[in-house]
Design a binder for these strands. Structure first.
Lengths: 264, 264
DNA sequence: GATCACAGTCCGAAATATCGGACAAGCCGG
DNA sequence: CCGGCTTGTCCGATATTTCGGACTGTGATC
């Protein structure tokens, strides 16, 4: 009879229930999610403030977690961040999921041979999520962050990942706010739907200058036995990449995607 | 190493205090460590038994953790294992440690170009630890498990990682039991010390048929500003790899190791 | 269909972990 | 040298979480 506290979005209010006292485990979850959002070490006092956890509680928990190697004290200045245990458990997870285990060498091979950033992506709820990311050889690496959720319409992969839904289902599935880009521009819904249909027909998706003005994304689907797109494999390249090269990359992606797909 | 030595006698004591009641967070830590030791999904009832946690408590915690994506229900048969959040946090950790971030492309590049399993290793307490592992292209992949601690004398890297210690310090540092190999053979301490001196002099270490009869390990040091070996980069290859090839690999490793080392 | 083993839920009681706030120590600027 | 600010430790009270055990549902075995 757990009440539906589905959210998880808020920062301060998220952890502490209305009045005050919370379970240690809930505070720990809030702490880790906070660090993940920050993507940089944080000082204990700041964690306490930003997660709404009492200071003494944070000290107590951090000690426990540091001992277990879940967290690590950094820089000697009392900042904390994730510890090696997270890497161990994370590797166990990657190895345990069949599709990811197969996708890994594929992604590294693409990045290594083509020299551009390659990624493996899925849906997580109604958001797009980078699962694997292998940076290319460029000086200024273009790469997304693993485990950060992004609105579906912002990405090429997103256009493939919803291609099993009808237009109405898609509109219902994707939150309206997600059609607004970081710079305030808005993606037209009907254009988005056209993109999806084209991507489905041609077996790949391409977006240009969406999230930022300098990158193009090329994506190919990974499909399950029912033909549904359950993941994508993609390149992130500069917008000025010559068309011929892009075409070559798309072919490469398509064959990688097909290799990872279950034959129908 | 095919034998996953699942230590069935997981310590009931480790988690709970003498009498009975324990903090949720301690239960969770025990649960995660247990899954990591198993390296395979476990059913809730088994987790309860093996970690000495009350059944109702495990159900409660697993629900909470599954909601946070720390754990995942598998197979529909009620087994649980690590969830994607561990991967997200683990990636954050890898990105946050300078040396590891630099080592990663190096290791993948070695594995990709040479085609043999490449690893990046450090010490964790008085044990040897695989931090990065990139499998090679062989049909029967030889590879160790990330986050599993191994006695120092069992490995080539171990011989480099303690080379800043005097013979007496080494003997004090490494537990006596660690000189016994999985098959019961015992490594002679003076031979081990000789190996270390030679490895230090020649700038690489090699061990053959130690942990199992079919593999050779080649390792080169990564040194800090003080010249101390803080990590190693290594190949795991079949024993019958021709000497000329091994020599070439050693040179490759040495240059990778040097690249990651701080110039003195 | 009776019996058993196992998976999962539920509930009240009591042991205790969380929390607030007090306190010591360090640092800084004036 | 003093006041203000921050970091970290400590302690007692009580609101809460853990735990034991009863209970239901399901599937297998005989």
């Amino acid at each position: 009879m757990t009440d539906g506290r589905a959210d998880g979005a808020a920062d301060v209010a998220a952890a502490g229930r209305a009045n005050g006292r919370a379970r240690g485990i809930d505070r720990v979850i809030a702490l880790m999610e906070h660090l993940h959002r920050l993507r940089t070490p944080a000082r204990i006092a700041d964690i306490a403030r930003d997660t709404g956890t009492p200071r003494s509680t944070v000290y107590e928990l951090v000690n426990t977690l540091a001992e277990a190697r879940w967290l690590e004290l950094r820089d000697g200045d009392g900042a904390v961040y994730f510890g090696p245990a997270m890497h161990w458990y994370g590797s166990d997870y990657l190895d345990s999921v069949d599709l990811i285990r197969k996708a890994r060498p594929e992604v590294t091979h693409l990045a290594e041979t083509v020299g551009e950033t390659a990624q493996f992506c899925t849906l997580e709820g109604d958001k797009y999520l980078v699962v694997l990311n292998e940076p290319g050889r460029r000086m200024f690496r273009i790469s997304s962050e693993i485990g950060i959720k992004v609105p579906i319409p912002w990405t090429a992969s997103g256009r493939l990942l919803v291609d099993h839904l009808s237009p109405d289902e898609i509109r219902a599935f994707i939150p309206g706010a997600d059609f607004t880009l970081p710079d305030g521009r808005r993606i037209a819904e009907d254009e988005f739907l056209t993109d999806i249909a084209r991507a489905r027909a041609e077996g790949y998706a391409r977006t240009t200058a969406l999230v930022d003005r300098f990158t193009t994304c090329l994506a190919a689907p990974v499909r399950d036995a029912a033909g549904r797109c359950i993941a994508t494999i993609c390149f992130v390249v500069p917008v000025d990449t010559p068309e011929a090269e892009q075409t070559r990359m798309i072919d490469t992606l398509k064959s990688s995607g097909a290799k990872l797909s279950v034959p129908r």
